[in-house]
């Protein structure tokens, strides 16, 4: 092949939204009394953002590809969390052992189980609930709300109405301390998992043929079919993967909160919606930046004025929509 390689970048990235993250962090710096507190809050914010990203990325990708917004996504998060309780509580021997590897192995099992369950439910959900209403937005919203009602009731029927305590594995409790700076261990793990998910998504989307198909399908699924690809199969796979990511996020979030309730999914969904709107409906990159922004904002404002933490994120959303009415990275559609 003759053309010169890398003469131009693979994609011309719009960088100004990226700058928002350091801007928010720097604006917060003088407002927060001490530097160590600021570092702690920043790490906490990034960790929270990563967990939100894990939960939100699948949803936004599904929307971009299939033009479907699954209002029942929160139920997958809750189911993931409850599956984790069913795996981790009987494995108390592993989680209470003072061995990082035993702890991580237990978590890995919980994560795999949660992802398998939510992925499978997602598959069934797509086939039974969503398939008949592709392209009809109003019915989609209603039908996925119906799915949410039924899913929540089934969760209550299976796991009961009471809150379940889910303590972190022993070696993931406590903090790393550097001088005055305190960083919770679990938050470091959350950041690592979030980065791993982002990297994996980035590689799949940009370096594989399936990723190429997905990106093309987000833009124009009819044209992808005209090139001879059965995009429906990709749709189903992405839906199942997005649901599995919700399950993973549910496990991470549940261990972070150390409690599991049937309302937790719906609770996080509000942040997820804000993140998706900020990022631009359908944009994974925008979702990543939006998640970090929301995580940082929630922690800084939560420290300075706890009562208006959620309000600050709504304000952030409104400001970003005034700047870019389609969100940070509008997805090019036909």
């Amino acid at each position: 092949m003759s053309p010169e390689k890398d003469e131009l970048p693979g994609a011309v990235l719009d960088k100004s939204p990226l700058a928002l993250i350091p801007v928010i962090a720097l604006v917060a710096l003088p407002l927060i009394p001490s530097l160590p507190t600021w570092v702690t809050l920043t790490v906490a914010g990034l960790a929270m953002g990563m967990m939100i990203f894990i939960m939100a990325s699948g949803l936004t990708l599904v929307f971009g590809l299939m033009d479907v917004m699954n209002f029942a996504h929160g139920a997958f998060i809750t189911i993931g969390a409850f599956v984790a309780t069913s795996v981790l509580l009987p494995l108390a021997g592993w989680t209470r052992a003072d061995s990082l590897w035993m702890n991580l192995a237990a978590m890995l099992l919980a994560v795999l189980a949660a992802m398998a369950v939510t992925g499978a439910i997602g598959l069934a959900f797509e086939r039974v609930i969503i398939k008949p209403v592709y392209g009809q937005h109003l019915k989609q919203i209603l039908i996925t709300m119906g799915g949410l009602i039924v899913a929540e009731q089934l969760i209550l029927a299976i796991w009961g109405p009471d809150m379940i305590a889910l303590p972190k594995p022993v070696t993931l409790r406590g903090s790393f301390i550097f001088g005055d700076i305190v960083i919770e261990k679990y938050r470091v793990l959350a950041v690592l998992v979030g980065l791993a998910v982002f990297a994996a998504m980035f590689l799949v989307l940009n370096r594989t043929r399936v990723g190429l198909l997905i990106r093309a399908g987000v833009e124009d699924s009819e044209m992808v079919e005209s090139l001879g690809y059965r995009i429906r199969r990709v749709f189903i796979g992405v839906f199942a993967a997005g649901s599995a990511l919700a399950g993973l996020g549910g496990v991470m979030w549940a261990l972070y909160q150390e409690t599991v309730t049937s309302a937790m999914g719906m609770h996080v969904m509000i942040l997820i919606f804000i993140v998706i709107i900020i990022g631009g409906l359908g944009s994974v990159g925008g979702c990543f930046i939006g998640s970090l922004l929301v995580g940082l904002m929630a922690n800084y404002v939560g420290f300075l004025a706890p009562k208006i933490a959620l309000g600050s994120n709504i304000l952030l959303m409104v400001l970003i929509l005034l700047w870019r009415p389609q969100g940070l990275y509008p997805v090019a559609k036909r």
Binding site: F63, I270, I274, I276, I314, M317
Partner: peptide, 13 residues
């Protein structure tokens, strides 16, 4: 869909 999401966020706030 956008309107539904925004109203959900505003109402929970």
């Amino acid at each position: 869909i956008f309107f539904a999401m925004i109203t959900l966020a505003v109402a929970s706030f």
